[in-house]
Simulated scan of single mutants.
Amino acid sequence: MKVLVVDDEAPARERLVSLLESLSQYEVCGTAANGVQAVRLAQETQPDIVLMDIRMPGMDGLEAARHISQMDTPPAVIFVTAYEEHAIEAFETHAVGYLLKPVRGERLKAALEAAGRPNKAQMGALGGSVGQSSRSHICARVRGNLELIPVEDIHFFQADQKYVTVRHTGGEVLIEEPLKSLEEEFADSFLRIHRNALVAKHSFGGMEKNAQGCFEVVLKGTGERLEVSRRHVAEVRKFLKSL
């Protein structure tokens, strides 16, 4: 079985690799130092199991596991953690494997043998149970592969029937997430301007009336315009005054 090892600390990665090399039925297919690398390597190497550190800079292990769970055939995820007992109980509740640092050989072997494939509902429940903050990246499926878009590069989300267009610095992708849940998750950095649109606060360039007398937000840098519904005009005006 192929195992991907993810930890931001080189000594921890090396220890796990060394322990795995002593187990003949497991093969290390790659190592990653952060969550973004983990998602990309998981797609490239198609591991059966991922040993995932939780606390890593940038994208942490919980977010990386959520993205990995969207693969067509997601691997089992075993968290490697120094979390206190109440967090460990949360992992147990949602049937996601875990190993407590420092990892011992016999515990690693047992966890590998017991690893199951967490489904998306379990991953979502796990994220909520340990107070996960908003994601650092949005994950979209593009031509069969998962593409990660940094939230800081996103200009706006715009809903159209069952899909949401994510316009970002490098182009745009489609995702299937409710606009309402995106609004709740990214309330600190995005503002609703219409029932179908959320705009990144850093992308606001101003608000103007068009020839038809309707208000539009002008995006900074691109000059692109998005309609502001009447019910959101006051809130947008208040936000722009605060800049």
Rank of each mutant, 00 (worst) to 15 (best):
M1G: 11
K2R: 15
V5Y: 07
V5S: 11
E9G: 02
P11N: 07
R13A: 01
R15G: 06
R15E: 14
L16N: 10
S22M: 15
Y26I: 10
V28G: 05
C29T: 15
G30S: 12
T31P: 04
A32K: 03
Q37Y: 00
V39Q: 04
P47L: 10
V50S: 05
L51R: 03
M59Q: 01
R66Q: 12
D72M: 12
V77T: 10
F79K: 02
T81V: 09
Y83E: 14
E84A: 11
A87C: 11
E89D: 13
A90P: 03
E92Y: 01
Y98V: 08
L99M: 06
V103K: 05
E106P: 08
L108R: 05
A115C: 10
G116N: 15
G116F: 01
P118R: 02
P118M: 07
N119K: 02
G124C: 07
G124Y: 00
G124D: 14
A125Y: 05
A125W: 01
L126H: 01
S136K: 13
G144D: 05
N145G: 00
L146Q: 02
E147C: 03
P150F: 02
P150E: 07
D153I: 02
D160H: 09
V164P: 01
V164I: 12
V166N: 00
V166A: 01
R167K: 10
R167T: 15
G171H: 03
I175E: 05
I175K: 02
E176C: 10
P178Q: 10
L179P: 04
S181V: 15
S181P: 02
E184L: 15
F186W: 12
R192G: 05
N196K: 12
M207K: 11
E208R: 12
K209L: 15
G221L: 07
E227T: 09
H232T: 03
K238T: 11
